[in-house]
Nucleic acid binder design. Structure first.
Lengths: 165, 165
DNA sequence: ATGTACTTTCAATTATTTCTGAAAGTTTTA
DNA sequence: TAAAACTTTCAGAAATAATTGAAAGTACAT
């Protein structure tokens, strides 16, 4: 397999993987393109290599920047902007976990708090409260794990895995 | 807050949470409805409570069954089918992790294997190979963690969390 | 100040996903 | 065996999400 072929294949797969996780395909593809590129990439490059429009490239790149996994950079003598991503997969994973934690765990905990205030003492209400408490406890533990992961490094994670039986 | 109100609110939020994770809203809502119901639920019940069509209810329930998180049940004297879900949140989490592992980790590892066979010895190829190796190593560790989680119980998970600093 | 090179925005279009509902299929009952 | 009770299927409709492209915006250079 030739390098370009391999890169292309990787970009496509990364796109599919992303869309399975509620991340739009183009956004994941732009990220993959940055991952496999040895040089910073311009909007033009993205448009050409991924066959997408300027608007699409611009919007999705912006979202990647907001997520903190892509950064703008400048090349001396060049006027336009270039983009790069951190090639450290662990840093990437941490950043993504951080985002999802903020965007999903927090709203979930808020909903849990809200529905905890349900009135009544009958069997059905008690069952409901028990369910909500279980979800609360689970969510808090997931939150705790994510928090530890975000603050960790690769070796920490590896050591934790080894400690588990 | 009244019980019905709380249930309704929970069902909506569960739907939103699901759709953030690439699970369709109705499917997540059906699951939530089953979670908060003290009795088994029929297709008719779903249609009425979630205001959805028969086909929609049927298809999404089937998918939940395929995922192993909902099961058919029968009520003595009733001809039609009823559905229930396990109220154990940990069992649910394990089942979901199991599904996603199978549906996403395995294809990812296959792609990684494919692009590993890239030809060439130049700097760019080496960089690409290094990236792929990092992703491979990360994916394998994620796979390992998921595997341990799937085989675990709540207490195991809790103990692991405590062991982590 | 004007032109040039580039970036951003967003209304309109296109693609994708989800949902409906009626018809076909299946199982039970009489 | 036939009708009734229920479930499944799937083509088309509707809803939602993603994308385009041209116009507006910005910043730099002369």
């Amino acid at each position: 397999m030739k390098l370009d072929e391999a890169k292309q294949h990787f970009i496509q797969s990364w796109g599919t993987l992303g869309s399975n996780w509620g991340i739009n395909r183009t956004m994941a593809q732009i990220h993959a393109l940055l991952l496999v590129s040895s040089e910073p990439i311009s909007t033009e490059d993205m448009m050409e290599q991924l066959q997408i429009s300027r608007g699409n490239a611009n919007m999705n790149t912006r979202t990647l920047i907001e997520w903190g996994i892509v950064t703008k950079t400048h090349i001396p003598g060049e006027r336009r902007e270039f983009f790069v991503t951190d090639k450290d997969i662990w840093a990437l994973a941490r950043q993504i976990v951080k985002q999802r934690r903020q965007r999903e765990i927090e709203p979930m905990l808020r909903v849990i708090q809200e529905v905890k205030n349900v009135e009544g003492n009958d069997k059905e209400t008690k069952e409901f409260k028990e369910l909500i408490n279980d979800i609360d406890s689970f969510t808090q533990k997931a939150d705790d794990l994510m928090d530890k992961f975000i603050r960790s490094d690769e070796h920490w994670f590896y050591r934790q895995l080894l400690k588990m039986v």
